[in-house]
Design a protein around this nucleic acid. Structure first.
Length: 270
DNA sequence: ACAGTAACCTGTTTGC
DNA sequence: TGCAAACAGGTTACTG
């Protein structure tokens, strides 16, 4: 489910409930996520207080004095804050129990992850090689262009690679390429510097718009009887294959790039 | 170092 | 209608 804006929204949603709160209990019902949930997770967490809740790429980082809890939602993961105990369902794999709320991790496909590390977080194997945050000032068209010079892979694969830029998933990569009028299959090193400037701007614009939408959609993150709903901005190409381009009315094309569904306008995107 | 593919899973949608 | 195949918003690991 989640792309970066959803993860950002989840972060903002859960933070007020768990920051500075002490963990009372940890219940793991299913260890088999992307990587096994550490067997000593409960032992590591019980009795400790959350110092901070942050995000890097699509990883949620819950910081403690003695280490960091790393959460990733994969394709189908959700987190919800329960203010009362609700009978866990089939895919509710982990509960982190605080005095007043339960943070519940749900993930049918189990591509998500829950890990514990005592490493300095920026040196952790999963995070150390990740590219700049797309909304930071370090992420610019010039940086993209520079990195692209040795890459003959399609531009879409290039920007979806976390080493290029953090957290640009399939939907927003597709949308940003349309906004910047760049053909998704164009080799990364054939895309001009000016196109990269447009692309970086498009990525920032789309992500900001989606985060803003998430903020207004999910006013109250805690739900006593359900899961927080996801949201989406209005999409101009993704999911619209065969329908007319919003700019020129040409039927939008569908292709696969790197095993991922890709939609574009052959008229507008070059 | 890079490009391309398989793999991890289950639920839902599509096609015969 | 039933059943099987294809597909889904992510990421790593492996291959050549």
């Amino acid at each position: 489910m989640p792309e970066l804006p959803e993860v950002e929204t989840i972060l903002n949603g859960i933070k007020p409930f768990i920051a500075e709160q002490k963990i009372k209990n940890v219940i793991v019902r299913h260890r088999g996520l992307r990587w096994p949930v550490p067997t000593d997770l409960a032992k590591q967490l019980i009795g400790h207080t959350v110092l901070a809740v942050t995000r890097r790429a699509k990883y949620l980082l819950v910081t403690f004095k003695h280490g960091t809890l790393i959460l990733h939602l994969g394709m189908s993961g959700k987190l919800c804050v329960l203010e009362e105990k609700i009978v866990p369902q089939k895919h509710d794999h982990v509960d982190i129990v605080f005095a007043n709320v339960i943070l519940r991790f749900t993930d049918p496909r189990r591509f998500g992850a829950i890990l514990w590390t005592t490493d300095k977080i920026e040196t952790h194997a999963l995070l150390k090689n990740i590219g700049p945050e797309p909304l930071s000032s370090e992420f610019t068209g010039d940086v993209l262009w520079q990195r692209a010079q040795k890459k003959s892979a399609p531009i879409k694969s290039f920007i979806m690679d976390a080493h290029t830029v953090a957290g640009v998933g399939n939907i927003y990569a597709t949308e940003a390429l349309f906004m910047a009028r760049i053909h998704p299959n164009k080799a990364a090193n054939k895309v001009t510097r000016e196109q990269y400037r447009l692309l970086a701007k498009a990525i920032k614009t789309i992500l900001k718009k989606a985060i803003k939408k998430g903020g207004t959609t999910l006013k109250d993150f805690s739900q006593s009887n359900g899961k927080p709903g996801y949201f989406s901005i209005e999409l101009e190409v993704y999911g619209r294959a065969g329908e007319p381009c919003v700019v020129c009315s040409t039927a939008l094309k569908h292709i696969k790039l790197g095993q991922r569904s890709t939609v574009y306008c052959e008229q507008c995107q070059r």
